[in-house]
Design a binder for these strands. Structure first.
Lengths: 212, 212
DNA sequence: AAGAGCATGTAAATGGTTACATGATTCC
DNA sequence: GGAATCATGTAACCATTTACATGCTCTT
């Protein structure tokens, strides 16, 4: 239910057309909350229906119309209320950790591959996050620059600080994932020569009648 | 789509009735993959329909029947194939990070509360994870003990090692969350005296016609 | 006699994924 | 002439959440 708040967050920076919202989303909020276009356009409309956004239909040179969305006072109040309310953390549900807990079933080659991909994916994410972090600290990030223009200079440090803070957290997460994958790769080597597990060696507990 | 594999993982340890599966799930796999009963029972049935589990209906002393589920060769093959295949990481979608990125909207009191809850939740999770880790290393964890009974002693170290590895990863994550929350609490104090952000000071960019 | 544990779910709603659909304009 | 970008979505499906539903047995 937070796509809603991701969009309100974005639109609290400046008004945007649906298209701008969806592309800017992909460049900024996306790193914190993923959503495809097919979710964004309908959600913008729903937010407008609820009065959290204002819409203007702009003629779009023969092409049809585009819509300009602007956050309302109600929308801002909703955003603020959400930001100020702690919510339970999302329940644990990460396939990588489930898989890791049962890697005794994988061949050493497959385990190496799985953990290698995990490391690489998070290394790449790490590089991306670090780049964005730099653009925030240097205040060259376009989405941030536009946001700052709306607020007095005394507010700028704080606005930037929370963005950087969020990225710092995700950077720490990404580094932890990389380190974890590397530990995993060491474990694979430690058990490299052990024969694979099979159902063959399964022995049923006495008393657990083997059906038929 | 991995509830399926969470259940196959659990049942690869030993056969269970639906009820045992759902309670044992809550004690073990749950820490890695959350699912409520209302998902578990129907999924067990689906897995049986697909031939990944065998079912025996056992009379349950007047009460009705209970079902005993046992993983099949096909089920084990499916589990193994899933474990050996890397999957894309789940897209980023954590409300805590979205919220953090816009904490300039919160009052210092609310921000303190939000971050404090985050820290406490993860501290508690951390303690739980560390306890389970100990029970794995000492091999007193009941679910683990039952699993080990099915495999030759030479396999035990590896089986335990991957479970511990998964918990180590989650422990690192929990610690990172706690540290991150604490950094956040420091940031709150740094901006304690800055007036709140409001829509009041919003200035529209020139050219962005103020509607109506 | 009450409460915990055994034993099993259904139903409705929400949220997210994937694939598809359309057509203009501007840049190379 | 073709690709990228602008500009919107719809539809079907799948997974997850939340709330509810039922009734027995064993222990205190």
């Amino acid at each position: 239910m937070s796509l809603r708040h991701a969009l309100l967050s974005l639109l609290s920076g400046r008004e945007r057309t649906g298209y701008e919202a969806s592309t800017d989303f992909g460049r900024s909020v996306e790193h914190v909350w993923h959503a495809p276009d097919s979710q964004i356009y309908p959600e913008l409309r729903r937010l407008a229906d609820l009065g959290l956004l204002d819409v203007d239909e702009l003629p779009d040179g023969g092409r049809g119309t585009k819509k300009r969305y602007r956050i309302t006072e109600t929308g801002l109040a909703e955003l603020r209320a959400w930001i100020e309310s702690p919510t339970r953390p999302r329940p644990q549900r990460d396939p990588a950790y489930l898989r890791a807990a049962y890697l005794e079933w994988a061949s050493p080659e497959a385990a190496r591959e799985v953990l290698g991909v995990h490391r690489d994916v998070h290394l790449e994410r790490l590089r991306m996050l670090e780049q964005v972090r730099v653009s925030l600290v240097e205040r060259t990030n376009p989405t941030l620059v536009q946001r700052l223009r709306r607020y007095p200079a005394e507010q700028h440090d704080r606005i930037v600080a929370w963005k950087v803070y969020a990225y710092d957290g995700m950077i720490a997460q990404a580094r932890a994932e990389v380190a974890w994958a590397e530990q995993g790769l060491e474990l694979v080597e430690r058990f490299r020569d052990l024969p694979p597990l099979g159902m063959g060696e399964a022995r049923d507990e006495p008393g657990a009648g083997s059906g038929a």
